[in-house]
Amino acid sequence: MSAAASDRDEDRALAGEYALGLLEPDAAAAFEARLLTDPDLRAMHAEWAQDFASLTDDFPEVTPPARIKAAVHDLLFPTPPRRNALMGWVLGGLMAAGLAVFLLMNSGLLGPSGPGAPTLTAMITAEDGAMVVAAAFDDTDGTLNLERTAGAAVPGRSLELWLIAGDNAPVSLGVLTDGVHTSVTVPDALRGQMAGGTLAITDEPLGGSPTGGPTGAVMATGVVTPV
């Protein structure tokens, strides 16, 4: 065998070892350095990768849970935080409050006071305004009416509403309908915790969280305050 052919065999075996992950760290680093400048070696490596990848041909495909896709999106494309912009917060809060009253008036959730009129309201909003849901709670019968005026569930996913009272764990109040209006009846035991509580909407697998607690990204939040 000529010296050139033997070098070529040496490289072939080396490229295979690298593709299998068998090289010691030093040897692997040296190989990677050569890859940058040696197109033949790159081709050998790519060939091995292709050959070995065929070992996975028979592996059954398994659809991953939907939350993985949401988690990848949250990692790569986070909603820009605005916590450092205090002024933005204050202005945003004022605007949200103004908007809340406006939307509540327009959505008919806030009628004249009297029996059946809401006693508590909340504006559940995203920091960037991408989701706005107005909520009105009537403590005489536990009805919580919601009007979604901005934002929607990711296709194939659901929006789930949670009540967070003080330091308690979030309790699900149900999944929002696809329509603009959702009405839920708050369980007796939770009605007393509504005032001052926080309502949050999270992105969940279709039909709602499978675990009983929120699993996806928080889309919007708002504090429940007296009318």
């Binding site: 996975t56 592996f59 059954p60 495909e61 659809t63 991953p64 993985i68 896709k69």
Partner: peptide
């Protein structure tokens, strides 16, 4: 491609 790649990770 996620189903194929998840199948590999699982295996």
């Amino acid at each position: 491609t996620s189903a194929k790649l998840f199948g590999i990770c699982l295996r």
